[in-house]
Simulated scan of single mutants.
Amino acid sequence: MQSVLRLIYPPRCLACGDRVESDFGLCMACWAATPFISGLVCDACGTPLPGTADPGAPVYCDDCLARPRPWARGRAALIYRDTARKMVLALKHGDRTDLAAPAAGWMLQAGAPLLRPGLLIAPVPLHRYRLIRRRYNQAALLARALARRGALDHCPDLLIRRRPTPVQEGLGAEARFANIDGAIALHPRRRALAPGREVLIVDDVMTSGATLSACAEACLAAGATEVSVLVLARVVRGD
């Protein structure tokens, strides 16, 4: 039966749709055009850095040195450009919810230094009005898939957006932080989950870090002992 199904529905590249050897994979051309992050990275946001990794000495990018993060550590699986950007936009706006599972696999690998037993995974929330229009929260899909793959605790509505916020796209860093200020809080019915827990916040893309900062601050204010962040893609200066 499986072989018959493969004849009828052969595996296709996640990005371009060409045939590939296994499900949920990329063809050679798309793999080459997908900027996976590896090597030395900023310990706070996961952006790639020049040099070689030294496990005993965390290093930080200029953005994180200029604006210290409220979270402890952060990682990203991809640089937000080329095929990575196309896949993120397809997941976010193109109803390609099938991308969440393989993306979570990439995030699991990138975020390995952050993952440990007892960690609570939570997505960056959408306001209910935007969730109704979009029909799903891509960050929640990634968080759920990541929790399943990593066998970790997961709370899809740990955080809420208390008010609708304008889209962040096109705004500078200061405007992004002002836009999100005071908009995110712990869900009133989930307050008992945060105290004494380490929390991992999951999102699709990190640009300035404004939204992730608001999420981290809300968790810490509710009693979380530590917050880390993990994103599918990181916008890198100059791209």
Rank of each mutant, 00 (worst) to 15 (best):
G238N: 05
G51S: 05
C42P: 10
F36S: 03
R176K: 05
D204P: 12
M1Y: 15
L26G: 05
L200M: 07
A147D: 02
R176S: 08
M1N: 08
R96V: 13
A143D: 05
A216T: 01
L200A: 04
H93K: 10
Y9C: 10
G46P: 07
V59I: 00
L89M: 14
A233I: 10
R75D: 04
R237M: 04
A218I: 10
S22E: 14
L126Q: 02
Q168G: 01
T34G: 03
L65P: 02
I132Y: 12
A76W: 09
C13I: 00
G25A: 12
N137Y: 06
A183F: 01
T34V: 08
I132K: 10
C61H: 00
L5M: 11
R130K: 15
G223E: 08
N179H: 09
L146D: 08
A183T: 09
G118Y: 04
R189T: 13
G94D: 12
S3K: 10
D63G: 03
P156T: 12
R148I: 08
G118I: 02
N179F: 06
Q109V: 15
G170E: 01
W106A: 07
K92Y: 14
T97K: 14
Y60A: 06
T211I: 02
V199D: 01
L108N: 10
A214R: 08
V88L: 13
P166H: 11
H93F: 15
A122T: 09
L232R: 04
R67T: 12
T52H: 13
V227Y: 09
L49I: 05
C45V: 01
A90L: 12
H154Y: 15
A77K: 06
L230G: 07
V41S: 07
S22W: 09
V167C: 05
L40G: 07
I160T: 15
R148V: 10
A103H: 01
P58M: 07
H127V: 04
Q138H: 14
R176F: 07
T83S: 07
A122K: 02
N137M: 08
R163P: 13
A76P: 11
A178Q: 13
A145D: 12
V199K: 07
A143I: 02
A221L: 15
I79E: 15
L99W: 11
R144F: 06
G170K: 08
R19A: 02
A192C: 11
A101K: 14
D43L: 00
Q168C: 06
G25V: 00
V59Y: 00
L115T: 11
A122Q: 06
L49M: 12
A122G: 03
L158W: 04
A140P: 00
T211W: 03
P35F: 04
C16S: 00
A72G: 00
R81Q: 14
L158A: 09
L230W: 06
L232Y: 08
Q2L: 15
W71G: 00
I201T: 09
L26K: 06
P70Y: 10
C61M: 04
L193V: 04
R161Y: 07
C42S: 05
P50V: 03
A185D: 15
L120M: 06
